[in-house]
Amino acid sequence: MIREITIGQYYPVDSVLHRMDPRTKLFGTMVYIVSLFLADNVWGYAVAALLLAVVIRLSRVPVSFMVRGLKAILFLLLISVSFNLFLTDGEEIFRVGFLRVTWEGVRMAAFMAVRLIFLVMGSSVMTLTTTPNQLTDGLEKSLGFLKKVRVPVHEMAMIMSIALRFIPILVEETDKIMKAQMARGADFESGGLIQKAKSMVPLLVPLFISAFRRATDLAMAMEARCYHGGEGRTKMKPLRYARRDYTAYAVYAVYLGVIVLTKFV
């Protein structure tokens, strides 16, 4: 079940989006998120949906992969939708006990759902078309100015990149340890909250130990390959803007403009 988390997973095909500079994609994702909160009517969301559809098409990643990322936020989605649905003042449609459902609530809940779904799908497009390394490269370079105020940008980017690489490995490991303890009669499902928390100890201790062992091994392997921080390091894939990136920035500008216009429709 935990295997299905797709956020942060790269889908290896060749497309315009894959070849785009990660900074362009990062900025684009930010623009998109901002636009989702700017838009406040059906027209705005229609434009956002159109852009998303075009981008997904361009990415050549199957839509099913984007949708799968939504599972991870299902709970969050449910909560925010119900909050908006029940706690918005306005013209009442019906009432269940102290919960009132209003037209405004339905509208807000629908917009909230659309926002969240688009937000996750939009960011999935970025993570699915950008290798975590490119992504961290992009972040490192975009935030490079922070180095001047002694923020360890390179180190943070490296940590992120490594974390992303080890997530699937640790997920698999969790699955294995869980099964191994179940073979020793462990029960991870029944019992109350305290019982459940206690039953996690035989899972968490081995997992931590394994994570530490991997970390030590990896640190040694990195050192053996002459890693010594960001200083004097060159890049195999240095970031360079190409024409498609300038085009993308132009598209962002136009898109934001259109979104703002829809507010006056």
Partner: peptide, 9 residues
């Protein structure tokens, strides 16, 4: 399991 020592806790 393989490498069963990894489940000691």
């Amino acid at each position: 399991f393989q490498y069963p020592e990894h489940q000691l806790f």
